[in-house]
């Protein structure tokens, strides 16, 4: 049963055409030149590239079922249709904008510079999306096409004006948070957690992301009053916020003195285990139904005990990593007046 599924992944259409291979060549050369020129803009530059690439890759793997990246050449793929060439392209683009804005307005606060990143990236990423769609590289899953209104700009759904800022915001906050750690920025420890702010940030992050990945999974069977937009339920969003809050409390009580990296992995580990158990219960109870495009990519392997597709089990810590970095970035910026 599982073997054909794996082979389907192996047999995924990867062969490039002359046009798509020329595009790959262009991306590699452009990224090489851009990264070479930017290498002296900040210390630890290649670490920064790695962090940004990790953020982009996490996002791409997590949202993989929403799009299909084809014809980039067999060498260009990391996992199913997730391509390291596109990851490199998005990485150079987003990092370039962040570093240039930081250099342009170094005296501005991080909170003031943040919307500038998004404003600059919106047209740039949209143009890149138009390019990949019209070259026949990028297409969208049936669930995404079903969720969008149908209005397109040069082949790209106009909903991308929402997707791009959310994608950029999550990836940039992931990068920025780890850049604080990389630069050795002193991060003031919280004496008392500001719960209202933390919950508001967590809810914002969860809602923005849930709205974006909404086509991938359907929330069914929750009380009617709890749905506030399409199939997004207060109960489901509240569950994620609760998990994040629980992880924050455990880390604060027991591991506050540990380095940031250690605290981060402990938090993700604790939250991930609880989330996996609850997600398993929700899936088996029929409350969480993954769309065809998502299940089609599943290899068929299940996690022991919780009996959840390994892809879901891996997606949970990826999701939490992006959420935690988003929340922590804004907390750090506010608490440290950065």
């Amino acid at each position: 049963m599982t073997v054909p599924c794996i082979l389907a992944n192996c047999e995924f259409e990867k062969h490039g055409t002359a046009t798509t291979l020329a595009f790959v060549g262009f991306v590699l050369v452009a990224c090489g030149v851009a990264l070479f020129l930017m290498r002296n803009l900040k210390p630890h530059f290649w670490w920064r590239v790695g962090i940004m690439a990790a953020g982009v890759l996490i996002f791409e793997i997590f949202t993989g079922p929403m799009w299909l990246n084809e014809r980039l050449g067999r060498f260009a793929y990391v996992y199913t249709d997730v391509s390291w060439v596109l990851t490199l392209g998005w990485t150079a683009m987003i990092l370039g904008v962040v570093l240039l804005v930081d250099r342009w307005k170094p005296d501005w606060s991080a909170a003031k510079r943040f919307p500038v990143y998004l404003l600059v990236l919106l047209p740039v990423v949209f143009l890149a999306e138009i390019a990949v769609v019209n070259l026949g590289i990028r297409s969208y899953s049936a669930e995404v096409l079903g969720a969008v209104r149908g209005l397109r700009l040069a082949g790209v759904p106009v909903e991308f004006f929402y997707y791009v800022p959310v994608f950029s915001a999550l990836v940039i906050t992931f990068y920025k948070y780890w850049a604080f750690v990389l630069d050795g920025t002193p991060l003031v420890p919280q004496r008392r957690r500001r719960w209202l702010r933390g919950v508001a940030l967590a809810f914002t992050a969860v809602f923005l992301f849930e709205l974006m990945v909404e086509p991938m999974v359907e929330n069914k069977g929750f009380p009617a009053w709890s749905y506030f937009y399409r199939d997004i339920s207060f109960l489901m969003s509240g569950f994620w916020v609760g998990i994040i809050a629980m992880g924050a409390v455990v880390v604060e009580w027991f591991f506050l003195h540990k380095p940031v990296l250690v605290r981060f992995f402990i938090a993700i580990g604790i939250m991930g285990l609880v989330a996996l158990a609850v997600e398993s219960w929700l899936i088996h109870g029929g409350y969480r139904v993954y769309g065809h495009s998502a299940t089609e990519n599943f290899t068929g392997f299940k996690t022991p005990i919780s009996d959840v597709a390994v892809e879901v089990a891996f997606a949970i810590p990826f999701y939490l990593a992006l959420m935690v970095c988003f929340i922590r970035f804004w907390e750090v910026v506010r608490d440290n007046k950065l």
Partner: peptide, 22 residues
């Protein structure tokens, strides 16, 4: 507990020509 995990890892390595090792 789950012997499939090793099979899955092996297939992941083979299917991606070793790139998934990163």
């Amino acid at each position: 507990f789950n012997r499939e995990i090793l099979q899955m890892l092996a297939m992941a390595v083979i299917c991606t020509g070793g790139i998934s090792l990163i």
